[in-house]
Each structure stands twice: as structure tokens, then as C-alpha cells.
Amino acid sequence: MKLLYFAWVRERVGKPQEDVELPAGVATVGDLMAWLARRGDEYAHAFENPKIIRAAIDRAHVRPDTAIAGAREIAFFPPMTGG
């Protein structure tokens, strides 16, 4: 599965994107954030406050309880500040 990171999430993780093999039991966006937070200090820092991190599956906003089955691309980023 392709993961993308933007803004300070990207800076903290230290890379803009990566491909990961997910273990069984990672079913939702929230599960994925919890799993990522255990992958190392940089991930723990990026995902230390998952409540404020936003996510998108295949380029559409999703909530933490959204299932990730069938997703091609999942992105994590801070609240948006465009406009």
C-alpha cells in the first residue's frame, strides 16, 4: 500500500511517501495511524496526536473509522491551511 505524507507530518516522518506491507489486524485509518506510530521515533513523533491528523484514501477525505480495505493510496497530513 502506498502511503503519502504532507507538511509537518512529512517532515517528522522524514519522507514524502513509501510503500508498506500491512500486517493483519490493521483494518481502519485509525488502526493504521496506531501501527505507524510504533514503527520508530520519527513515526511516534509524527503521529503522537492522531486526533489532529487528517487522512485521505485515494484522494478523498476520510474519517479515522474508515476501513482501508481496497485502498491504493492513503495520505496523512495536518489540518489544511490553503486559500
Partner: peptide, 14 residues
Amino acid sequence: LMDFLKTRAPFWKQ
């Protein structure tokens, strides 16, 4: 449109 660009369009200002 501006209200939604501010809160939903994936842009981040540094």
C-alpha cells in the same frame, strides 16, 4: 468556495 478552500483543499502554508 473560499470557506471550503480554506478547510478542505489539501494545501499547507509554511
